[in-house]
């Protein structure tokens, strides 16, 4: 991993032909504008991410890209096609994991995969073959005949993910795929997504897990209130929006504001969160000794490298813990 930003990947490159192009894309619901004119380009084979607080418009954007929600204004092209005219042809080539599962609760686990495959006109034998393989991947082989209604939340999520792969998609849209997954299942999924990337599958992900975005995404955008507020690779965003290191201080409950004032001026910036105070500084240790020098007596102190979470905090003013 290089810590030097490569500007070539920051500006959305125009070659090869982008797989997703959005220009001035908006989405309105009865007068309320959930997406307020965004521009995007996603290249074939790229792993692209959307970050943003609740209600930022990530799912609304994903649903337009999935051709299940009409564009309110602006233009959107996938594979060079217009969703308004060629929705069915586009959908045939993509896999979708919606934020909320849309599994068929009246069918068994494997029937869900077969029938979904049939919606894509796959031959029955092919549906069965792929279903067997996907159940293996989703670690649901022993539950193949269970009724979906009786699966646990995480199992349903895994089935949703497996189902999205039934048509061998060229583009995979993942709206918070790992929400509700246990750590082991999450790592199995990451590994699979990484393999798909190596096979050249383009992927678009939304997530609230910054480690996930950092691990998987080549490039990502941060959305806030329907707009894109930053764009770049995880490394670039950290370099651009955060300091090299962060000092995390925990004080006795209820004294954060008072300590925030005490620390004013140390490092580049201070951030008072409900549970801790962050000091952004290129040299965390130096900031810590300065804090001690000013008489701060934190219950715990930690110096760490900046992460995507800090970028998120800077850009949206919101902590992920609330």
């Amino acid at each position: 991993m290089s810590s030097v930003a490569s500007p070539a990947s920051a500006a959305a490159p125009s070659s090869p032909e982008p797989l997703i192009v959005a220009r001035g894309l908006t989405k309105s619901f009865d007068g309320f504008e959930a997406v307020k004119g965004i521009d995007l380009e996603v290249r074939p084979g790229e792993f692209f991410g959307f970050l943003g607080p609740n209600g930022a418009g990530k799912s609304s954007t994903m649903r337009m890209i999935a051709c299940v929600s009409p564009v309110s204004s602006g233009t959107l092209r996938l594979f060079g096609l217009d969703p308004a005219r060629d929705g069915a042809r586009i959908r045939a080539r993509i896999g979708v994991v919606p934020q909320l599962d849309t599994l068929d609760t009246e069918l068994s686990v494997q029937e869900n995969l077969w029938i979904y495959g049939r919606f894509f006109d796959l031959p029955r034998s092919e549906c069965r073959r792929r279903a067997t393989e996907l159940l293996e991947f989703a670690q649901l082989s022993d539950r193949a005949d269970s009724v979906v209604e009786h699966l646990s939340g995480g199992m349903k999520r895994r089935l949703s993910i497996a189902r999205s792969l039934i048509n061998d998609p060229e583009l995979l849209l993942l709206d918070e795929p790992t929400t509700g997954l246990d750590p082991q299942a999450r790592h199995v999924l990451w590994e699979r997504l990484y393999r798909l990337k190596q096979q050249g599958v383009t992927q678009v992900l939304t997530t609230h897990y910054m480690d996930e975005a950092e691990q998987l995404c080549d490039r990502l955008v941060v959305m806030d209130q329907g707009r894109i507020v930053a764009e770049g690779s995880p490394r670039e965003l950290i370099d651009r929006y955060s300091t090299r290191e962060v000092l995390e201080l925990r004080f006795a409950a209820g004294t954060n504001d008072q300590h925030g004032a005490l620390l004013a001026g140390i490092g580049d910036k201070q951030e008072v969160l409900p549970d801790r105070v962050l000091v952004y500084a290129d040299d965390g240790e130096a900031a810590l000794s300065e804090a001690h020098h000013r008489g701060a007596r934190p219950e715990s102190a930690l110096v760490r490298r900046s992460s995507l979470e800090d970028v998120f905090l800077q850009l949206t003013g919101r902590s992920l813990v609330d």
Binding site: A66, R89, A92
Partner: peptide
């Protein structure tokens, strides 16, 4: 049951 939501994410219209 929201059966149709899933169908509409495929080439089905």
């Amino acid at each position: 049951a929201r059966i149709y939501d899933a169908a509409l994410a495929t080439p089905m219209g």
